[in-house]
Design a protein around this nucleic acid. Structure first.
Lengths: 249, 249
DNA sequence: CAGCAGTAAACTGTCGACAATCGGGAGAGG
DNA sequence: CCTCTCCCGATTGTCGACAGTTTACTGCTG
């Protein structure tokens, strides 16, 4: 691990590896592939910080401080932030710096729209390429989500849900959709920390898998699309609730 | 103009502006906004080089040479290329450099798939938000394309076609779709230099505008989708022709 | 006490230089 | 003559430093 994580700075970093130690093993088992470039590591670390909420939307990302915390110079940090701006996680203001992107309600709404189409496409293709083992795995994930709902285990549900859609994407075998879908998911990461009507959502999952299992391509597409649109509706109603609450307060 | 274009290096660069010349006007009319960052300028210049075909798919982009040609240091060049990698125009190979991305047939096919969905979405929304002036402008562009086809003016057709889809995107007022659509178009830029069955394509344009003008949302969506899928079919058939030719040779 | 100007600190944008790594070519050996 | 190895040049990855701009603080004035 070349790059220090920001977390690790809070602890004493005692995990310094002495790679050049003792004997040189004739056939090294792992370190054959060179360490990833610092830019990429910084990219992933900043991505993690944003996704985990440690960097809140709208907050400023200071190059200098970040570079110091990660133990690298500003070069790689600048490269990483540039890429993250292009990826849509950050926004750059000339001569002011980069900030964690905050989405307007319109942008979130549009995000749902495109995700719906992509989900439909991937479900349709998944219905064409399904195998018994995949269907079994999807059903297993649905059960997992069911259990997570019963135990109010938000994180477990979140992970299983991610795995569910990830597996569909994998089976769909459509890299272009998959990539864009992942980008869109990342942009709206903060929405997924709170959950609305998970039971109903999981019911939709069941229907989707049934259509995929039956090989009903068009039905799978429609259910996939609707699944996301229903998510959008749930988000909208939660918005209205928030607005009502703030109004009554 | 701070940045030198690569083209300009072939000519003698005589257009050196002496910005600090003669008198200082008390109230400067234009230069109030500071020049764009070099990274952004390099970004656009490399993008232009790729789009125009001066940098062919698969060719290597040398940081040092590019920086020297543009008259900047390698820092901005690295930032720009990182962003372009994220944008999908370049690919980075660790410790080897960046190359102009070349798409496999599968990737191009998938590109069409997603573009079809987005075009459908934008046409549907355009049908909801149409105005008389927009319809008139769309019809005007169709006529322009018609004329370009008659005159075998590929470039004119290309530009009008771009304007046509751009106008629909603008009317659709769906930034998310629009952004992704543009990215996808850029990735497959090289396909649009050769044209297949433009007359038929323009006929589809007519139908699309008719549906949008009539406010028939679902029909507009379907025609928009099909328009791109027909483009995909035309591309596939041109592929087969190429394969047949190379086989007979 | 509030508002404004001036100054100083902080931060971004950019550059040149050094180190590490990869590819190609020369040379030796089979 | 072919192949493998070693070395060198070319190129990327990274760093520290400087310059210009923005921001924040301080002190002055109405």
């Amino acid at each position: 691990m070349v790059l220090k994580t920001v977390d690790s700075l809070l602890k004493t970093d005692e995990d310094r590896e002495t790679a050049q130690s003792a004997r040189v093993i004739p056939m090294p088992v792992k370190p054959l592939q060179r360490a990833e470039s610092l830019s990429s590591q910084v990219y992933r670390e900043v991505e993690r910080l944003v996704m985990s909420g440690q960097l809140e939307p709208g907050s400023k990302v200071n190059e200098y401080i970040l570079a110091e915390q990660l133990g690298v110079s500003r070069g790689p940090v600048r490269e990483a932030t540039r890429a993250l701006v292009q990826a849509g996680l950050l926004v750059a203001v000339p001569a002011r710096g980069v900030f964690v992107r905050e989405l307007s309600e319109t942008e979130i709404s549009e995000n749902y729209d495109v995700r719906a189409l992509l989900t439909g496409l991937m479900c349709a293709r998944a219905a064409e390429r399904r195998t018994d083992s995949v269907i079994a795995e999807l059903n297993h994930l649905i059960v997992e989500m069911e259990e997570a709902i019963g135990q109010r285990a938000i994180l477990a549900y979140y992970k299983a849900n991610l795995a569910f859609h990830g597996l569909i994407a994998q089976v769909a075998d459509h890299a272009c959709s998959s990539r864009i879908y992942d980008d869109l998911i990342r942009e709206t990461h903060f929405l997924r920390r709170s959950l609305h009507a998970p039971a109903q959502t999981n019911e939709e999952h069941r229907d989707m898998v049934a259509a995929i299992a039956a090989g009903d391509v068009e039905r799978a597409r429609r259910l996939g699309e609707e699944h996301v649109f229903h998510g959008k509706r749930r988000w909208l109603s939660s918005l209205k609730e928030d607005a009502a609450e703030t109004k009554t307060i």
